[in-house]
C-alpha cells in the first residue's frame, strides 16, 4: 500500500471580482510516495506546494482528480487518526498556552488525561520548548510557533506526516533540529512528506523528491537521478599543497582558488574523476580537507525551468 497517491489532482481558484476566471494553481499532479520514504516536495514560491498539501488535508476540494492517503480517500476520519500536518506558517489560539493547545489536540485524538499529560510533556521536550510551555501562544515568536506546530503534527505518532515548509522561520540551529527530528521520524518508520523551496533541505534528508513549478510537476525521482542535479564536477579542498605540485597538475584542474596559505579549493571536471589527482597530490605531501560533488542548484534549475514555461 502506498502512503500517498494522487492522480491527475488539479485545483482552480476563481480570480477576479466581477467576472471570476479559474486560475489553475495545480495542474494534473500524479504522485506516488511509498511508505517509509522521506519525500521532498520542492518548488519556488507560488508553485502550488501549499495547495497540494491542503488538498491532501481536504482543506480544499479538488477541481478534478483524486488523492489517497494510506489507501483511503483523503478526509476520512480513520486516516486523519494516522497522519499529522504542519500548516505553512502555523497559527493557533492566542489565549491557550503551548501545553494547553497540545492537550486540547490530544483530547481530540482521543487520549485520556494521564496519557495526554505524558505525551504533551515529552513532545514539548522533543521540539525544544522549555519553560515557555506555560506561556500563552500570543507571546510566541514565529520560530516558537513553528516548533509548536511540529509538536502537534507528531502528537499521535503518525504513520505519515505532512510538513509545509517546516524549516521556514527557524534560525540555523532550529533548522538543524528540525532536520534531526525528521531523521528520527524516518528511523521510526514514519513517512515524511515535506515541502520546501530550499534544495539543501531536501538533499540532506530525502530519498526522493518531486519538483513543482507553476502548478506542474517538472521532475521527480532521486535527487541524483534527476538530470539537472547530476554531478557536474568535484570540489576538492587540500592543505599543505606546495606551489610546484600545484603548477605540475594545474592542467587537470578547472579552477583554483586560494583559501589560505598553501590551502586551495580546486574545481575538477567530472571526468576522469578525482581519485588519480588526489592520489598524486597526497603523494606529494598535500593533506585532504574535503571532497564534494558539485551540482546545479535548485535555484538555477527553477530559473531555467520557469523560463521555459509557456504562459497560461
Amino acid at each position: 500500500m502506498l502512503a500517498i497517491q494522487t492522480t491527475d489532482l488539479s485545483k482552480d481558484f476563481p480570480v477576479g471580482f466581477w467576472r471570476p476566471r479559474p486560475y489553475r494553481a495545480l495542474d494534473k499532479l500524479t504522485l506516488e510516495v511509498e511508505q517509509g520514504e522521506t519525500f521532498g516536495f520542492l518548488g519556488p514560491n507560488g508553485a502550488g506546494k501549499t495547495t497540494t498539501l491542503k488538498l491532501l488535508m481536504q482543506l480544499l476540494y479538488p477541481t478534478s482528480g483524486r488523492a489517497e492517503i494510506l489507501g483511503r480517500p483523503v478526509g476520512d476520519v480513520g486516516v486523519k487518526r494516522r497522519i499529522g500536518y504542519l500548516p505553512e506558517s502555523p497559527y493557533f489560539y492566542d489565549y491557550l498556552t503551548a501545553e494547553e493547545l497540545l492537550s486540547y489536540f490530544a483530547s481530540l485524538v482521543g487520549y485520556g488525561a494521564a496519557e495526554r499529560r505524558r505525551r504533551v510533556s515529552a513532545l514539548l521536550d522533543e521540539v525544544g520548548i522549555g519553560s515557555e510551555r506555560r506561556l500563552q501562544l500570543r507571546k510566541f515568536s514565529k520560530g516558537m510557533l513553528q516548533r509548536v506546530g511540529i509538536a502537534q503534527a507528531i502528537l499521535n505518532d503518525p504513520e505519515v506526516v505532512f510538513l509545509d515548509e517546516p524549516m521556514s522561520g527557524l534560525d540555523p540551529l532550529g533548522r538543524r533540529e528540525v532536520r534531526n527530528l525528521i531523521l528520527s521520524l524516518r528511523d521510526r518508520g514514519c513517512t515524511v512528506f515535506f515541502s520546501s523551496h530550499v534544495l539543501a533541505d531536501a538533499e540532506a534528508l530525502c530519498s526522493r523528491v518531486a519538483i513543482l513549478a507553476s502548478g506542474r510537476l517538472i521532475a521527480s525521482g532521486k535527487i541524483t537521478d534527476i538530470h539537472a542535479f547530476q554531478v557536474r564536477g568535484w570540489e576538492l579542498i587540500v592543505a599543505h599543497l606546495s606551489g610546484e605540485s600545484l603548477e605540475r597538475h594545474r592542467a587537470r584542474m578547472r579552477k583554483v582558488t586560494a583559501i589560505a596559505d598553501r590551502q586551495y579549493a580546486l574545481e575538477l571536471p567530472l571526468e576522469p574523476g578525482p581519485d588519480g589527482l588526489l592520489r598524486d597530490l597526497i603523494g606529494e605531501g598535500a593533506h585532504l580537507v574535503s571532497l564534494n560533488p558539485t551540482r546545479e542548484s535548485l535555484e538555477d534549475f527553477f530559473i531555467q525551468q520557469v523560463g521555459q514555461q509557456e504562459p497560461r
Partner: peptide, 14 residues
C-alpha cells in the same frame, strides 16, 4: 481567518 482551523481539521474530527 487566522487559519487555526488548518491544524484543527487535520485532527480526527468531522
Amino acid at each position: 481567518e487566522r487559519r487555526s482551523i488548518y491544524s484543527l481539521l487535520s485532527k480526527p474530527i468531522r
